[in-house]
Amino acid sequence: MTTPDPTDLTDLAALAARVARLEEAELARNLLHAYAEVLDDPTPEAVAALFTDDGVLSVPAGDFAGRDAVTAFYRDRLGPGASEKRHFIMNVRTRPQAPGLVEVASYFVFTARESTTSALGWGTYLDLVEITAGVPRFRHKTITPHLATDLTTGWPAPPRL
């Protein structure tokens, strides 16, 4: 038996596999939207529910493995005194890795406001999304912040030599 040619649109098995990959990529992309939406009105449990039971969150402070550790991370960051934020995700690229597994890379921007200041920041996400029974969840989420600043300080360019 020959391997199906994924570019042959007359091969029904190849076409079905291609459609399945596209559907999984779209589910993975939509998970990023759900993540941004949950972060805009967050509870640690709601954010952690977007991860698999053994999911890993990687941030500059370290790795947080398992849903309980992810919940604790967000409980620490989203507790009393946390600013009100809005999250925006853009330049999303998906790459199927295997059936039920999609890598998603994207950029994020956030705005924040507190009683006396406003802030913004940006960075990148690199996610490995597992899709089980049509439900996407983060197996591994890497957050790489590039900048976080208040609007008074801004982000001036370094002096030119």
Rank of each mutant, 00 (worst) to 15 (best):
V92R: 05
Q97S: 09
A98L: 09
L57A: 04
R77F: 05
G81W: 11
G81D: 09
R95D: 12
T43C: 10
G66L: 00
R77W: 06
A36P: 05
A72Y: 11
P44H: 07
P80F: 12
R95T: 15
D40G: 15
F73E: 05
F108C: 09
D53W: 07
A105D: 15
A65S: 14
R77D: 03
P44E: 04
I89Q: 00
S83F: 12
P60T: 13
L50P: 01
S58D: 02
M90H: 08
T71I: 02
T94V: 01
R95F: 07
G62R: 14
Q97R: 12
A36E: 08
Y74E: 09
H87Q: 02
V102K: 13
R75D: 15
A36Y: 09
F73I: 04
A48F: 05
D40C: 03
F108P: 05
Y107Q: 02
E45M: 10
I89E: 00
F108V: 01
T94R: 04
Y74V: 09
P60C: 11
D54G: 07
G66E: 07
G79N: 05
G81V: 00
A105W: 04
P60A: 05
P80H: 14
V102S: 10
T52M: 05
V59G: 00
A82I: 03
S106L: 01
Y107W: 07
P60E: 10
R95Y: 08
A61E: 15
V92C: 06
A36G: 13
V38S: 03
V38C: 05
V104R: 00
P60F: 13
A46D: 11
T52I: 08
A36I: 05
L39W: 00
H87C: 04
E103M: 01
L50T: 01
G79P: 11
E37L: 13
V102Y: 13
R75T: 12
G100C: 01
M90P: 00
G62P: 15
A46N: 13
F64H: 12
R75M: 06
K85E: 12
D68A: 15
V47H: 02
G62M: 15
L39K: 01
K85F: 09
Q97D: 11
T71H: 13
F73V: 10
V47C: 03
V38T: 15
V47M: 00
G55C: 01
A69S: 13
T71R: 14
A65D: 11
V70R: 04
D68N: 11
L57E: 00
E37K: 06
Y74A: 04
A48M: 07
E45S: 10
K85Y: 10
F88T: 08
A65T: 08
P80Q: 14
G55T: 12
G81R: 08
P96A: 14
E45T: 13
D54W: 06
T52C: 10
